[in-house]
């Protein structure tokens, strides 16, 4: 009888320690136009579902996007919960994108997260969206301590880990590269998001037109380049403008990356974020890594854009370091900067 009890306690302890190594985390992403719901265990993705809002015309309207998220989250969550190979109460934490992003979208996502957390009595984890993109790369690719080029529709930053935080070495001084590509795409009547369409158009362009080259140390700015590219559309073909725009903007990103590498001497480069899916940008940044004798990794194409998996991976670190968020403190942070997060999970 006693032996039996000891055995049971041992098993129980074992299960608890297993749980602390590999917690099961639900990740909810909703900072802009993508609703993402995923469940992961350690490094393993169990379910991953997402839905993306495509505006019928123009760019993303925050309210329209939030309405879309509110409509999609229940459907996605239902789908995910049905496909789980275990009961819902096995989930150890609910991670959600607390910021930065569009206010209405963030509030919708936070409401969903709080509701699930209260209903199932599972702790909340508030994840910084930018850091989630970095943590995704650190989880699914073999990089450790990389210099990160994070390129997406909302952000363009050079990030690296220094003195207990992810520091932003350089960033866009106005609009993000993805935003620049989308804006230019709209000008040519290409569908949203413009990035992939511009990439395709650029493949048939071959004439390099002159554009400004704006780099300020390790920071850059793209809005003036969009204006200059728009003007070129009057006299030149769409493929040539797309080709030139990509060549110029990517050269700027490459140069800033090389400068940051040369300053920090980091052993690897990680390309992450939605624009990381661009094959041409991948080739260019890979050449930069070669130039500075470092290794290169890009996140897989299917996880480049916003998704619930990355939120869950980052949430796992918060869970493991005991950074539980109470519902009272879970207000969204639309302007939450990368370097404001205390990173307790990296030595």
């Amino acid at each position: 009888m006693w032996l039996m009890w000891i055995y049971r306690i041992l098993i129980l302890n074992h299960e608890i320690s297993m749980a602390s190594i590999e917690p099961i985390i639900l990740g909810l992403e909703g900072t802009a136009h993508t609703a993402g719901v995923a469940v992961i265990k350690g490094r393993e993705v169990i379910v991953n579902e997402s839905a993306t809002y495509f505006p019928p015309q123009g760019g993303i309207h925050p309210r329209e996007a939030a309405i879309f998220l509110a409509k999609e989250f229940p459907i996605l969550i239902d789908k995910v919960f049905k496909r789980l190979p275990f009961k819902i109460d096995k989930i150890d934490g609910i991670a959600f994108s607390q910021g930065p992003g569009l206010g209405p979208c963030l509030r919708t996502t936070a409401t969903v997260a709080r509701a699930i957390s209260l209903r199932l009595n599972i702790p909340l984890l508030g994840v910084n969206h930018c850091i989630a993109h970095v943590e995704l790369g650190r989880t699914v690719t073999p990089v450790d301590d990389p210099l990160v080029l994070y390129v997406s529709g909302g952000n363009t930053q050079l990030i690296t880990f220094l003195n207990g935080r992810y520091r932003v070495l350089g960033e866009t001084l106005d609009i993000a590269i993805g935003n620049a590509l989308d804006t230019l795409g709209r000008e040519m009547n290409l569908p949203h998001p413009g990035g992939p369409h511009i990439e395709k158009q650029a493949q048939s362009g071959n004439k390099l037109l002159t554009l400004p080259y704006t780099i300020k140390g390790m920071s850059f700015s793209f809005s003036g380049m969009v204006t200059a590219a728009k003007k070129l559309l009057h006299d030149h073909s769409i493929p040539d403008v797309c080709y030139s725009f990509q060549e110029y903007t990517f050269a700027i990103l490459a140069e800033a990356t090389e400068r940051a590498l040369s300053c920090t001497k980091k052993p690897s480069v990680l390309l992450t974020g939605g624009v990381a899916a661009n094959a041409h940008l991948q080739t260019i940044i890979q050449k930069v890594a070669q130039e500075q004798d470092t290794s290169f990794q890009a996140v897989p194409r299917n996880l480049a854009g916003d998704n619930g998996v990355m939120i869950a991976f980052a949430g796992t670190h918060l869970f493991n370091t005991g950074k539980i968020l109470s519902v009272e403190d879970s207000q969204v942070k639309p302007r939450w900067r990368t370097d404001q997060v205390q990173v307790g999970w990296i030595e």
Partner: peptide, 10 residues
């Protein structure tokens, strides 16, 4: 010269 840049830009 940088190989990652278009030769003309470079």
């Amino acid at each position: 010269p940088k190989t990652y840049r278009h030769p003309e830009i470079d």
